[in-house]
Amino acid sequence: MTNIRNFWLGAALAVFAISGAAAQDAPKGDAKAGLANFQKYGCYTCHGILGQGTLRDGPKLNPTALGYPAVLQQLRTPRYEMPAYTAVQISDQQVADIFTYLATLPKGPDPKSLKQLQ
């Protein structure tokens, strides 16, 4: 059964997305430092190393669609079960780095080109 947390989180993030936040709102970040922070702070444990999401533990992350303010707000005051990460634990700049890392990841191959997926 789909975890209800995913539903609430998705709903919350959708609201942020509609509010007009966009990728260009993010402070300048460093993708390499972002990956390091993504690992250091354990984001990958629930969301996967590419932010691809896992079925039960954390949704797919789509920073470009959500925008930096929404991502920051979810991190600081998360809806539902996600633990909060305050500025004591992770700075705004580090969040910006993570945002940049996720936003610059390649899309991946066309699923139709992968025989294993057919």
């Binding site: 996967g48 691809q52 991946g108 191959p109 294993q116 997926l117």
Partner: peptide
């Protein structure tokens, strides 16, 4: 679902989607 797995296809460490679909093949 296929699009989701394609996104994580080349991930390292190896993603569960890639592992599962290589086995399926």
């Amino acid at each position: 679902f296929r699009e989701r797995v394609a996104f994580e296809w080349d991930a390292k460490p190896i993603s569960s989607g890639r592992l599962v679909m290589e086995l399926w093949d």
